[in-house]
Each structure stands twice: as C-alpha cells, then as structure tokens.
C-alpha cells in the first residue's frame, strides 16, 4: 500500500492550498469538503430526496441492460465473424462505417426513436459496448492457432465440437478483453447519456448535472469520485471472474 503514499501527499498539499485560500473553494473544494459533499449526497440527496444509492442503482440498471444486449449480440456475431470469412467480409464494411460515430452522437436520434428513458439510455450504452465486444471476440477466434483445430479434427471432432470445444474456449481471453473494454466504454457513455435528460430523475450523470445547476462543486466532485470508483470495482470484478474461470497463465 506504500505506492499510494504520493497520492496521500498530494491530497494533503491540496487540503493545505484550500485551507490557505490560495484556491477559492467554489472552483476547487478541498478533499474534506468533497467528503462532506459525499455525506450530503448519501443523506440528503441531490436533488434533495434523491439519495446517492438510488442514483447508483438506476445507473447500474441502465448499464446492465445496454451491456447485456451488447454481449448477447456482440459475442455470437464476433464468433461468427471469426469463424466464417464470408460473414466477416459482409459485416466488416458496416462495422467500419458505423463504429467511428461516437455513441453520444446517437443520442438525438435515439431520443427520436425511443424517447427519453431507459430504452434510449440502454441503446447508447449498447452502442458503446457493442463494438469492442464484437471486434475482440472476432479477433480472438482468428487468433486461435489453426493447429489446434487440426488436432481436434484428427480426434474426430465435428464442426460443432470445434466451435464449442476449441474456438470458444480459445477465444475466451479475447472475449474477456472485449467485455472489460466494452464495460469501460459503457460506463463512460452512461454518464454522458444521462446528461441529456432522464425521465425518472435518477442516475449518476443526472445527479452531477443537477449539482452543477445549483452550484455545488463539492457534490459534483464527490459524484465524479463515486463514478470512478464504481468503474474501478466493475473492472476488478471482471478480472476476478476471469482469473476464477481461467486459472492458468
């Protein structure tokens, strides 16, 4: 834990600067004020009555939907793209054209199509997570050593056996990379998607935008801290899951 010592020192320095009034606290609140802001988010809520844990639950709910749909479509399509060269050739031009459009640029059309609410938010998150999942899965299949497929064939494996017992486990490390990158993008996309309005008044992005509207930088920064920490915890959970089911290497 010694490697976090420099962070601690910077926090102390920051606190001192704020204490001396070198930095005005309406621009940058001190670490202690941010902690107090966090306390307010937990107890009073922002806007008042809308408590932090509910914001977190709503955000996770949206990400859960968008990410699940991205997995359900991206992983199978990625496997097919890696396995069938023809499918790869047909799908690639679409991917190349659509992928460079930032997910956030889809927000207006998503609202036109799906209205403001969980469906459009989930759609934006889906777009963010889908392409990393699709492309990592496809490249995972392509990276499976062809000699392993030959070995399976000489042991009388059918196409179905090769798919489920060679290609799928062989591309699992890449699928995990895709899930971690996809989840990272999904989480980033979520907060921005919530800026543009949520119907039910909950969500971490909505929360910090509301805090901005009423000039509460301590609560904005506390909210940012929470968003970062949840992203970190989710990534940590994925890594723990991966090392549990793939105990080698």
């Amino acid at each position: 834990m010694w490697r976090y010592l420099p962070v601690l020192l910077v926090l102390c320095f920051w606190q001192i600067l704020c204490f001396l009034g070198t930095v005005p606290n309406y621009v940058l609140p001190s670490p202690i004020e941010i902690m107090e802001g966090l306390g307010t988010l937990l107890t009073t809520g922002m806007p008042p009555g809308h408590l932090l844990h509910n914001h977190i639950l709503y955000s996770l709910y949206r990400v859960g939907w968008g990410f699940s749909i991205a997995c359900a479509l991206g992983i199978p399509l990625g496997l097919l793209m890696g396995w069938f060269p023809l499918f790869h050739r047909v799908l690639s031009p679409f991917v190349e054209l659509i992928r460079p459009i930032p997910p956030l640029a889809w927000i207006p059309i998503a609202i036109v199509w799906l209205g403001i609410g969980i469906r459009s938010a989930a759609f934006i998150i889906f777009l963010g997570a889908f392409f990393p999942l699709l492309l990592n899965t496809a490249s995972g299949v392509l990276s499976v050593n062809p000699i392993l497929i030959d070995a399976a064939r000489t042991l009388n494996a059918t196409q179905k056996d090769i798919f489920f017992k060679v290609l799928l486990p062989g591309s699992l490390p890449s699928i995990f990379v895709g899930m971690r990158v996809g989840m990272g993008v999904a989480w980033m996309t979520l907060v921005a998607a919530e800026f543009s309005g949520v119907k039910d008044g909950y969500g971490l992005g909505f929360m910090i935008m509301t805090a901005r509207d009423i000039q509460k930088p301590d609560q904005i920064l506390a909210g940012m801290l929470i968003i970062g920490m949840i992203g970190f915890i989710i990534d940590w959970l994925f890594r723990a899951w991966e090392s549990k089911i793939r105990p080698s290497v």
Binding site: L148, D150, A151, P169, S248
Partner: peptide
C-alpha cells in the same frame, strides 16, 4: 508443436 489445448 504438441498442439495441446492450453485451456485444458
């Protein structure tokens, strides 16, 4: 090159 399945 042995061609063993590394995940097994």
């Amino acid at each position: 090159q042995y061609a063993l399945f590394p995940w097994r």
